[in-house]
Amino acid sequence: MSIGHTLLGLLESGPRHGYDLKRAFDEHFGHDRPLHYGQVYSTMSRLLKNGLVEVDGVEAGAGPERKRYAITDAGVTDVAQWLARPEKPEPYLQSTLYTKVVLALLTGRDAAELLDTQRTEHLRLMRGLTERKRKGDLADQLICDHALFHLEADLRWLELTAARLDKLAAVIGS
């Protein structure tokens, strides 16, 4: 995820302090991986340097000064361009699991067993995500669904490969 673009996008609704930005980020996107303060301030310094944000005000307090950041016109354009640009789809052509299956067949090990073990591991994770969905809000449900659909795709590949093991073994052995 591009943290810079995400923080810029959050600033579009109005100026915020670094702390507010972190809180907004964590609330929307940081369920599993909240942002460190250091990441916020280093990102804001970079955005400042590039003219994508500006300091809108400084509050003096007992602690360090609190800067309030505002997005610039160049920043708004940058967010718009980022949103309009499609993400590069992951090609999924480098599969460790495929490598393991081939190696198992090449070395005379039980490839079906390997696939069964992997299915159990996938389902374990899917159960956890399903439980989180049951208890979570809509954002949780959408995030978990994204993961669940990908894991399901893995499992469909796994079932297809399990059904083709004899054929694959023959190809590899020839």
């Binding site: 069964d116 894991l151 469909r156």
Partner: peptide, 24 residues
């Protein structure tokens, strides 16, 4: 079921293949 997302609502799974069962 043959759908993993449906199976994820279970507590555990067994796999049937060629009439034999593997209890995971």
């Amino acid at each position: 079921t043959h759908e993993a997302r449906v199976a994820a609502y279970s507590d555990r799974e067994i796999v049937v293949r060629d009439g034999k069962v593997k209890d995971m």
